[in-house]
Structures are given as structure tokens and as C-alpha cells.
Amino acid sequence: MKVVSIALSAEKGTRKTPVTTANLIAEHGLEGDAHAGKWHRQVSFLAGEDIQAARDRGIDVDFGDFAENIGTQGVDWPSLPVGTRVRLGKDVLVEVTQIGKKCHVKCAIYELAGECIMPKRGVFARVLHGGQLSIGDPITIE
């Protein structure tokens, strides 16, 4: 299990821009990301396998297009119960706070893809312990 994508955006409801490293701040989220702050959805996750499944259905998408912060390989995020702690790399520790989300409006992601997989496959977490995160870092379910 590993991190395969990290992405940030300055505005909510838009595609995120891929980066190779990011700083996660405890009880805040990814530094510089519009979704960071003092709430329960500080960081969002989506499995790379889910993005590939969307591609296989003919949707032209890539990492960051669903506004997820962290794309992964080998983690079935929706199967993790709320409260599960996940270590990212050496230092970062997050706690799963929500599985899926309700989309209130048809955002840029929906317009791009014709559907959004975040309501069923996206997972959200709060940052318990911050630190530097890089593509390729291992993921450990604690």
C-alpha cells in the first residue's frame, strides 16, 4: 500500500493540481489546500484503482480530477470503519472521519466526468499528527 498521488487546490469544487510532496498540519490538513481547516474533512482519499475503473468506463480522468487530496494504491478506503487510524509515510497519522459525501451541486468534477465517485468511494480524515508526505510513501493501517 502506498501513496501514488498528492494534489492541492486553492478553491473548493475544482480539480486539484498534482504535487510530488506536501506538508500535512495536525488538526488542519494539507498546507495550501482549500479543504484544510478545523473540521472533520481535512484530507480526502481515493484509491487509484477507483480512478482506473472510471477510465475503464471511458471517462477521461486522472488523479486530482475528483478533488481528492491523496491517491493511493492497494487500499480499499470505503471498507475502513470510521475511526480507523492510518499512517502515511513515517510521520503523518490520520483518522478516518467519513465515508463518502453528499454532492449538493453539480461541481466542475461532475461536469468533467459526467459522474463523481467521491460520494461512494471517497474517504475523509482529520490529521492527528502532521509531517511531510511524498509520492511513493508507504501506507499502514493501524
Rank of each mutant, 00 (worst) to 15 (best):
G58A: 08
T72H: 11
L80S: 13
G64W: 07
V96M: 04
V105F: 07
T72M: 05
F66S: 01
N69G: 08
K102F: 06
V94M: 15
C116H: 06
D65P: 12
Y110W: 11
F63D: 15
V96W: 06
V86K: 07
D56R: 04
G64V: 05
V96N: 03
F66E: 01
Q98I: 04
G58W: 03
G58F: 05
V75K: 14
I59Q: 04
C116V: 04
E95K: 05
F63G: 09
G100Y: 00
D62C: 14
I109R: 04
G71D: 07
I59A: 01
V86T: 06
I117H: 04
V82M: 09
Q73E: 15
I117E: 05
V82Q: 09
R85P: 02
F63Q: 11
V94T: 03
L80Y: 03
E115G: 08
V94F: 08
V105L: 06
G114C: 08
R57N: 03
G74S: 03
K101R: 06
E115T: 15
R85L: 13
G74V: 11
G71W: 02
Q98M: 08
T97V: 11
D76K: 05
I117G: 11
V105H: 07
V105K: 06
Q73K: 14
E95P: 04
C103Q: 06
I59D: 00
V96S: 09
Q98P: 01
G89I: 13
G114L: 05
T72R: 12
A67V: 10
D65E: 08
R57H: 13
I117Y: 12
V92E: 10
Y110E: 09
C103A: 03
C116P: 08
P78F: 09
D76T: 08
R85E: 12
D65T: 15
N69S: 02
I70R: 12
I70K: 14
G71F: 05
G89L: 14
D91W: 08
C116I: 13
V105S: 09
V96Y: 08
L112M: 14
A67Y: 09
I59R: 14
R57D: 07
V86F: 07
I117R: 09
I70G: 03
I117S: 04
A108E: 10
H104G: 14
D65C: 15
K101A: 11
P81R: 01
T97G: 09
N69Y: 00
D91F: 10
W77T: 07
R57M: 12
G71K: 01
S79E: 15
A67M: 04
P81G: 02
C103F: 00
I59G: 04
D91L: 14
A108P: 01
